[in-house]
Nucleic acid binder design. Structure first.
Lengths: 228, 228
DNA sequence: CGGTCGGTTGAGTATGCTCAATCCACGTGG
DNA sequence: CCACGTGGATTGAGCATACTCAACCGACCG
């Protein structure tokens, strides 16, 4: 359950509505290694219902994959970072929306005729299969988190995951804002904020720069705060 | 949040612990169409951590894919019915457990050397890819449900989904018990029961036979009760 | 007939949500 | 340089949904 009117407003930034999609995308033959595209912060890469013509590999930046319910509630299925593949879907149309969390550069590949492509290049099939299995693994773990973990456990798991994927280090900068984290973890902005603040008070993490910069101070404690 | 001691007890039926795995599985060449196996109600088909040697296609029965947290909380990632493929995972080991909800018959296929198999038979690759994409779609929709829907919306969505997959009809029998539904939808047994009872009182559904037989009486109402 | 298992129902509670105020950093314009 | 407005984050108070604990019911089985 989530607010209806304020949440809806929060999820339709006027900027995002104004600049939908890049002007014209040059068509290249299928064997092409991919077309380079830029998207500004907040811009939609594709929208639910769009024809699923392309899939993407991220060169730099962060992408969120999300779905909205009609009343404005939003669920962010996943965040994707550099080198991740996204946008490959069964069927003709995209069932989710992909948006740039910050400035993003991607390589776009044609999805049509993918079967033929794989027939020609079995290694590609293997790579895509691996990428799909990886997405599926991630989605499954996230199901467990959403279905059965407390707010504190969710945040702990999220921070550990992000740290690993973003830096491998214990020090990183969150590319997304509180509302994105909330909609990813099935929480509200307020609960995310409160939980982070409390974790900082407990000495598990350090927070700087508008709460965007995070440092893991007590990795064991944070791991224990997750439920595994 | 979930109970700790009672829930844990509920999830370790002595029967399931007693009879782990079928005795001996005959090894056949890779091109084999699949080895037929039977599993009794409650039996584990594979357990988290097991080597992922095989994947499966269901001939008959219902399978649940689940993960337990150490304190006994459980999340059921998915239910699978006849014709569904499950058990294909990235990496060497199963990260989830598959259990027979009722008596189950499956065909088991060797997962090792799958890349070679696909190289030999590109159609198989396509079929598996489709199956994977289908699982991913399903997992993503379920993420939205778990993260952002109310108890009533969850149950409504669940019933509509099950009806479609199980019978295509508005009349069907639930193969799983309340605890399974609860752990699939991120709820408790009591909330599932109460919500179903209320839906029956509201004339949306009919319930018979220990609440196992369900009839959809008002499909529009039920669809409206979901959030889409 | 007693025991168990699965399901239902009731009463009270806690976690996380809602509503609202405040704060802070930043950018803009007088 | 400072006033002002804005967007994001934080904090507080009260509340609602779903959980916990517990009793009860009905079917089935030995």
């Amino acid at each position: 359950m989530q607010a209806i009117s304020p949440a809806a407003a929060r999820h339709f930034p006027p900027a995002a509505l104004a600049m939908r999609g890049p002007a014209a995308i040059p068509r290249r033959p299928a064997a092409e290694p991919g077309v380079r595209l830029r998207f500004a912060k907040g811009e939609a890469i594709y929208t639910e219902g769009d024809e699923a013509e392309r899939f993407y590999r991220i060169v730099s930046g962060t992408v969120r994959i999300c779905k909205m319910l009609h009343d404005g509630r939003r669920q962010i299925e996943a965040f994707h970072f550099a080198r991740d593949i996204f946008g490959l879907e069964r069927g003709d149309g995209h069932r989710f929306t992909a948006e740039a969390v910050d400035d993003v550069v991607v390589l776009a590949f044609r999805a049509r005729g993918l079967e033929d492509l794989i027939r020609d290049d079995p290694d590609l099939g293997g790579e895509l299969m691996t990428s799909l299995l990886s997405s599926l693994d991630r989605a499954r773990d996230h199901l467990v988190l959403l279905g059965r973990k407390s707010a504190r456990e969710k945040i702990a798991a999220f921070l550990l995951d992000i740290a690993e994927r973003l830096s491998g280090d214990d020090h990183f900068e969150l590319p997304m804002q509180r509302g994105d984290i909330a909609d990813h973890l099935g929480l509200t902005i307020e609960t995310v904020s409160r939980t982070l603040t409390r974790m900082a008070r407990d000495g598990l993490i350090g927070l700087q720069a508008c709460g965007r910069t995070v440092e893991i101070l007590n990795r064991d404690g944070l791991t224990a705060a997750d439920a595994g």
